[in-house]
């Protein structure tokens, strides 16, 4: 672990809804990276990656959004965000008519927090404490888009980057699930356009976690967690959601 001197400068990308609704996860991301010896800068003029439009079929409206993203983030060594979904969108869909070179650069250096910790910083230990039973919710974009874990559909060797990190947290007990990588049903505008299906999918995910004893559901995507939390709150459940950055940054 790096304790002195900055090794790199990271542009912190905090997706729009995280900024507005989950500032604690953003703070935890910032503090965790700082603790690990990384210089972190949060460009104030950032807004959104453009995913909500693109996934609804309006990718042609995202060029201004893309231009702004490039303006904000092109100069950093790395770009890190506590959201697999937004990172995947940038990796797959960020383009620029004026400066495709810069867009390509960003697509290659943007990381979701978990993979940044395991693949770039290659951390092997953490001073985190979180004495609770935790179920991991693999966001589909993190799982099948960024390959943060092996996908159960494939005949391939298992691995899990979030699990690897959670194993470094003292006191934390991971619960195993009946369906370890089933979608929660958030799906962007799907969550309102297909409200009934979305909620049913979310309810079933929540049940899998709670019946297997989870006190917390964690994920590298707050969009999934926001949806699951909405269901948990409505049903007055004791199970809580927490972004993985908050666990990895937690001390006694």
């Amino acid at each position: 672990m790096f304790v002195t001197g900055y090794i790199m400068t990271v542009g912190l990308f905090i997706p729009c809804y995280v900024n507005q609704f989950y500032p604690d996860a953003a703070k935890a991301t910032l503090q965790l990276l700082q603790k690990l010896g990384v210089e972190v800068v949060y460009p104030a003029k950032q807004t959104c990656c453009g995913q909500p439009m693109a996934n609804s079929g309006f990718a042609h409206l995202t060029s201004d959004c893309d231009a702004l993203f490039i303006q904000n983030f092109a100069e950093f060594d790395y770009i890190v965000a506590p959201s697999a979904s937004c990172v995947l969108h940038v990796k797959d869909h960020l383009h620029s008519a004026e400066n495709e070179g810069k867009a390509e650069g960003i697509r290659g250096k943007i990381y979701e927090l978990v993979e940044f910790l395991t693949d770039v910083l290659k951390i092997e230990k953490l001073d985190a404490v979180f004495p609770h039973k935790v179920g991991i919710h693999h966001s589909c974009h993190g799982l099948r888009g960024l390959y943060l874990s092996q996908m159960t559909e494939l005949n391939a060797a298992p691995f899990s980057k979030p699990q690897q990190l959670l194993n470094m947290v003292s006191g934390l007990e991971q619960v195993s699930l009946d369906r370890p990588d089933e979608c929660c049903g958030f799906g962007g505008t799907f969550c309102v356009a297909e409200e009934a299906v979305s909620v049913k999918m979310g309810k079933d995910r929540v049940t899998d976690h709670s019946k297997n004893g989870a006190e917390y559901i964690t994920s590298s995507d707050l969009s999934c967690l926001m949806h699951l939390e909405g269901i948990l709150h409505r049903n007055k459940s004791k199970v809580k959601v927490v972004h993985i950055a908050e666990i990895l940054n937690a001390t006694v």
Partner: peptide
Amino acid sequence: IPFVVNNKFNPWYKQREMPEGPKESFAEWY
């Protein structure tokens, strides 16, 4: 934002609570 439009006609709210709005955004805190 379609999934959090705060009115009773919003399908989000039918079976889910809205996320709780914190005192300040991360940008403001930062």
